[in-house]
């Protein structure tokens, strides 16, 4: 037998392989990088297998109904009662209902077991991270008993590998939801209520989290990077973040800093080590060490940074950073200064 030509042609045969390739990656629950995600992944496979089985049975039944020999009844005629068929149908239906209930109970048991194993992983912590969802970005804090050693950054969570972490979740305006599929399931961030999530990443890597609860215009552009390093690299990152912003190294950078401090930017953004101390927008103290701009909307580089400041409303329409209208002659100096905030 010959297969009909595929509409997508020969190359299309690679398609199924591509689909499989999508299973691993920085934002995939099928590629767990932590105990919690692994357990939730098992539950996912159990549900998938159960549903696939039911689906197959229903389809087979339908096929059988289509293929079997049909008896023909004259128009207006009556089908003579057939005790045998009636009985078989009744038995089949009862078996179907019993089977459905059994499968549902099996799902409940599996889900209970997975939940229980997740609670065993909870309430262990060596590192505490506080994530606050805002329209449409994330504040990330590492609180410390000594306030001068707590860190505030944005749109980026750094974690040491193999260390249990407590993530405290808050929301400033509306309900958001944090979903880092490689590490854990979703958890809502609710204004006025503190939720939490326990994570242990068991391999190094860069993963992507995403807001998973519709929260307004730019919900789709509300992502964050999760960077899992070795303990030593994590501690080094923390030390670097604790330092105030580097002072401008030359004339040009000093001009950029002055532009920042005398314009609208300081109404919203803070840069530690300068008089800018507002906190309603992302902290820019170590902006240039981050991987992305505006909650994953753009990868971080100088060109994108200039594009963002020149017109944030083109990149993320409706977001809460207004078009400030920096004259082109000042833009480069401003961008050079921000790009020096490593």
């Amino acid at each position: 037998m010959r297969w009909p030509p595929a509409p997508w042609g020969r190359k299309g045969r690679v398609l199924p392989i591509l689909v499989l390739a999508a299973c691993s990656g920085p934002q995939s629950m099928l590629d767990p990088a932590g105990g919690q995600a692994a357990r939730i992944g098992v539950m996912g496979w159990i549900l998938l297998a159960g549903c696939a089985f039911v689906y197959a049975v229903v389809l087979l039944w339908l096929l059988w109904a289509l293929a079997r020999r049909h008896r023909w009844v004259e128009p207006g005629g009556v089908l003579p009662p057939q005790a045998g068929v009636e009985r078989r149908l009744t038995n089949g239906l009862v078996a179907w209902v019993v089977g459905t209930v059994l499968i549902l109970f099996a799902f409940v048991a599996a889900s209970y077991a997975v939940d229980k194993s997740l609670t065993h992983l909870a309430n262990r912590e060596e590192v505490v991270v506080e994530v606050e969802g805002k329209q449409w970005w994330w504040t990330v804090r590492y609180p410390d008993d000594d306030p001068s050693r707590s860190i505030t950054t944005a749109n980026e969570i750094h974690l040491p590998v193999g260390v249990p972490v407590r993530v405290k979740l808050k929301a400033a305006d509306v309900i958001h939801s944090l979903w880092i599929p490689n590490l854990h399931g979703k958890m809502d961030l609710i204004p006025g209520r503190d939720n939490e999530l326990f994570l242990t990443a068991d391999r190094e890597g860069i993963f992507r989290g995403q807001c998973a609860e519709f929260c307004g215009l730019q919900h789709a552009h509300m992502a964050l990077d999760v960077i899992v390093h070795s303990r030593a690299a994590f501690d080094a990152w923390k030390e670097a973040q604790l330092a105030p912003a580097p002072a401008p190294a030359d004339e040009a950078l000093a001009r950029g800093q002055a532009l920042f401090l005398t314009s609208a930017c300081t109404m919203c953004h803070g840069i530690r080590g300068t008089p800018a101390s507002a906190s309603v927008a992302p902290d820019l103290t170590h902006l240039a060490s981050r991987r992305s701009i505006a909650a994953g909307a753009l990868p971080y580089n100088r060109g994108n940074l200039a594009g963002w400041i020149a017109d944030p409303q083109r990149i993320k329409p409706g977001n809460h950073m207004p078009l400030v209208g920096v004259p082109p002659s000042d833009l480069q100096a401003l961008v050079a200064y921000l790009d020096s905030l490593k």
């Binding site: 005398t262 314009s263 609208a264 300081t266 109404m267 207004p322 078009l323 400030v324 209208g325």
Partner: peptide, 8 residues
């Protein structure tokens, strides 16, 4: 002055 963009 100069701290709030016009539209805002």
């Amino acid at each position: 002055r100069n701290k709030i963009p016009d539209q805002q």
